[in-house]
């Protein structure tokens, strides 16, 4: 039981962590909760289904599995990046200097819009995510682990490492950190702030797309309101780790998922979501800077 809940928690944690990174990156730079981020993740899953359908009719899933797996991740990533950039351009950029409530309300509106747009064009029913990877399972310390779970964990950890490298080593990553510390100052020393913000949204959305496709593969089923709950959980994870803090986001993701998984296993599966919300409320009240503290820039949480 314990080992099984641990494995389940780790897999869900990988998904939460990937989504949480999007929240944390955007928050670090704009001090804005991108409410619509969960919907981007949902759109990623749907685009994954569409890609699989096209690949299936082309017969590529039979002939070249490796290529189709790459495409199933790559195309949703491109699409979600496009959605993320458009979202920023349409709903947030015009409000960058508006009172704080305005972008928040606009974000909620965007979330509502995207969620229901998908419902209108794709229907309200659950969609099946075709099974692509037939991987065997094995037993480890009394827990059943299948290949897909390993694949998800490895991919998620790899992406997180890549993100860390990107932020630490590249010029654009440096520009992102500079913008997070002080937007005005960064623009004074020649950082194209608008471009950095667009890139931030794109990166967050790409990670969300991967998470969406993973969840589709893992559960085999997708609907248009998975984004809301996943978004809330991921946000909780980001806050738990210290919002604005990249390392914190994935620590928080795994921690929240494990807590939730054990709660569901040992206490009450019905109140699993309530538990996650309680964690959020408790963290915000007692340690709003999270486990690892905030972005390291201006310690503002107003």
């Amino acid at each position: 039981m314990f080992a099984q809940q641990l494995v389940n928690g780790l897999v869900v944690g990988a998904v939460y962590a990937l989504i949480a990174l999007g929240y944390t990156l955007v928050y670090g730079i704009l001090q804005l909760i991108n409410f619509a981020h969960g919907e981007i993740y949902m759109i990623g899953a749907y685009v994954g289904i569409a890609v699989l359908a096209v690949l299936g009719t082309m017969g590529l899933t039979q002939t070249s599995l490796a290529l189709s797996i790459v495409l199933v991740f790559l195309i949703p990533m491109i699409y979600c990046a496009a959605y993320g950039i458009t979202l920023e351009r349409v709903a947030y950029r015009p409000l960058r200097n508006a009172p704080r409530l305005s972008p928040l309300i606009s974000a909620i509106g965007m979330s509502l819009f995207l969620q229901n747009y998908v419902q209108v064009v794709q229907g309200a029913r659950d969609k099946a995510f075709p099974n692509l990877l037939e991987l065997g399972s094995f037993q480890l310390f009394g827990a059943y682990v299948n290949g897909l779970q390993i694949f998800i964990l490895v991919l998620a950890l790899g992406l997180m490492a890549a993100l860390q490298l990107f932020i630490k080593k590249t010029k654009l990553g440096k520009a992102m950190r500079a913008t997070a510390q002080d937007r005005t100052m960064a623009s004074l020393v020649g950082v194209n702030v608008n471009r950095v913000i667009a890139v931030t949204f794109a990166i967050g959305s790409v990670l969300a797309a991967v998470a969406g496709v993973m969840v589709g593969m893992y559960y085999g089923i997708v609907n248009h309101h998975i984004g809301f709950v996943a978004g809330m959980k991921a946000f909780t994870a980001a806050v738990l780790g210290g919002i604005g803090n990249v390392t914190g986001a994935f620590l928080g993701g795994f921690l929240l998922a494990l807590l939730e998984s054990f709660w569901a296993g040992y206490v009450s599966a019905v109140y699993k979501d309530v538990f996650a919300f309680m964690v959020l409320v408790v963290v915000l009240i007692f340690r709003p800077e999270g486990i690892l503290g905030g972005s390291g820039g201006e310690a503002d949480r107003t």
């Binding site: 946000f235 806050v239 979501d273 309530v274 919300f277 309680m278 959020l280 409320v281 915000l284 009240i285």
Partner: peptide, 28 residues
């Protein structure tokens, strides 16, 4: 009382969570 210290977006999220908690409790 618990959200006295929170402002802006944090407050929004906590109230959202509170609303969901009430609904889930009513449901379960």
């Amino acid at each position: 009382i618990p959200v006295l210290r929170l402002r802006g977006d944090y407050l929004a999220i906590v109230t959202l969570g509170f609303g969901e908690i009430i609904r889930l409790v009513l449901n379960n």
